[in-house]
Amino acid sequence: MSLNDQTALRVVLYEGTGAQPLEPQQRYDAMSALLDQGFAVTRAVPDGSLPAADRSSLLVLGRFDGGRPPVAVDAQNEVDIRFEDIDGCGTSRIVEMVENVRAEQKAVKPGDWKPWFPVIDYDRCTNCMQCLSFCLFGVYGVDSGQHIQVQNNDNCKTNCPACSRVCPEAAIMFPKYRSGPINGDVVSDADLQREKMKVDISSLLGGDVYQMLRDRSDKARSRFSKERDADKALTERQKCLVKLAQAGDIPPEVLMSLPSPEEIQRRAQEAKAKAEAAIRNQP
């Protein structure tokens, strides 16, 4: 099942009409514990309203009057709504109750996958396809309009920010990265001109990338075939990965998980072909 097909269980702490408010400490403890377990929690207060429905299943928790939780169904039969009374329940009991409902409804189990994947800043992206050409794990692809996009984010290697290093515009973010601009901090001139980044990109692609980008509009259609040599790119890519690993940017386990040289070559050529096709088909 792909990430996108999974439904989530959303929890509502209901303190509106027909329910008693929770004690502040109990509310904080419950919310904190549920968030740590990966659940989304909405606090609904008197005079407030329940949030609009989405694809999530809803579990509404509250200290309901008389200890009797209401029963409700979605008239359009799109959202599964459950009510549970939590009067007298401790935090661990509440978490257990929520987890049981999640399992029963086969909703996504939070925490199974660490959300590490590239996020593209399209204000900066020039659609140069270097990320697509670089990534060996098939994370990137193009949409019907030949625009770069992240298509398989769960293929991304946890804690590896290498593709953000090859982006000449610092347009690729990993929000959980430790430092800027990869973490989403504002990009500075210094980031763009950082010598290390220039060296890395040149090493990776085996050419003067900045000159190549300046000429991009004229040469886009033939750029890859003229300026890139697959064998050289492969060798330089491996050298650069070692260099990046030494600099602390790529975890050893990612390097260890690289496929055989033959497989790397096959994937590199596949990625290159995708990038070439995308450039060729750009309007």
Partner: peptide, 27 residues
């Protein structure tokens, strides 16, 4: 979180926006 939870306002809390984005969560 503690201050928000102890106030009298309603609010939404999510475990991790990155994880939701990766799943393209309709929420």
């Amino acid at each position: 979180l503690r201050e928000l939870a102890q106030s009298d306002i309603g609010f939404e809390a999510v475990a991790d926006l990155c994880e939701m984005s990766a799943r393209r969560d309709p929420a």
